[in-house]
């Protein structure tokens, strides 16, 4: 599964990078006379409600999805790891404050907080990145806090402390690395979550705004044409589902590697 997932992600990443070479059409160029026409040899995925080539828009949308996944996951992982390590290592009041903040953020189910934030801040790609990061870092903080609490008691960590090593060195060299496999698994699954999050917000009209091509925005545009042009929905949705499946396969595979017991 790991290999299948990696292959899917790599092919989609290649499509995002090589974008303009894969299709001769501009993702925002309109051919109004051909609007809503179905797949043909010239336009394998057909044209949308404004006569734009759907393949070109999916390829351009892949860039947005990868951008969101990479930015949200890397910022969330760094912020979460910093706060989680501080909470777990120092304990006391710092731990209490950080834990209450994470508890409050976790009290909002899934995307709801992101919807609330974007509703207040206004729909834009920047606000989507901000909102998804606000809900994203909490998971890493919880995970790393738990791992650090455990690692703090390891003998080699206590030995480093006894030798007079600085706290930052103990954390960076000895404690945080023990959490890296778990962070890697969470980050891979987090990529899938970020892609679904962006697409979901854009589908609701709260994310990336037209004419910028995003898979969620494309699905939103297809809603009005389920009856006469289902290809507007089929292809962008397939792209989302495939990429998310790819990341989920990789995440699951990594988790099995990190924890052989789960393989049974």
């Amino acid at each position: 599964m790991l290999k299948v997932g990696a292959a899917i992600v790599l092919v989609m990443a290649f499509a995002a990078i090589a974008g303009p070479m894969l299709t001769p059409f501009d993702p925002v160029q309109q051919e109004l006379a051909l609007r809503l026409s179905g797949p043909t040899w010239g336009h394998p995925f057909g044209l949308d409600e404004l006569g734009r080539d759907i393949l070109a828009r999916i390829v351009a949308g892949a860039r947005i999805s990868f951008l969101v996944a990479v930015v949200v996951v890397s910022v969330s992982a760094v912020v979460g790891t910093v706060f989680g390590s501080i909470a777990g290592y120092f304990g006391g009041l710092l731990d209490d404050v950080i834990s209450r903040v994470t508890d409050t953020l976790l009290a909002f189910p899934g995307l709801l907080l992101a919807i609330a934030l974007v509703a207040a801040l206004g729909p834009s790609l920047g606000n989507v990145l901000f909102a998804l990061t606000i809900i994203g870092w909490v998971g890493y903080a919880r995970l790393v806090r738990g791992q650090v609490l455990r690692a703090r008691e390891f003998e080699y960590v206590q030995a480093a402390r006894a030798l007079g090593a600085r706290t930052s060195r103990i954390l960076l060299r000895h404690v945080v690395p023990t959490a890296l496999p778990a962070i890697a698994v969470q980050a891979t699954l987090g990529m899938a979550g970020a892609i679904i999050g962006e697409a979901g917000l854009s589908f609701l009209g709260l994310g990336v705004q037209p004419p910028t091509p995003s898979w969620g925005t494309m699905l939103n545009g297809g809603r009005a044409h389920l009856l006469d042009a289902p290809h507007l929905t089929l292809f962008p949705g397939l792209a989302i589902a495939l990429l998310v499946l790819g990341f989920n396969f990789v995440g699951d595979g990594l988790r099995d590697l990190a924890d052989p017991k789960r393989k049974r």
Partner: peptide, 18 residues
């Protein structure tokens, strides 16, 4: 199960409707 988890509801819903 993994396919089910990867299929966002904003895709599954319209697909079922189609």
């Amino acid at each position: 199960a993994l396919v089910g988890m990867s299929m966002p509801n904003f895709y599954l819903g319209p697909l079922l409707a189609i």
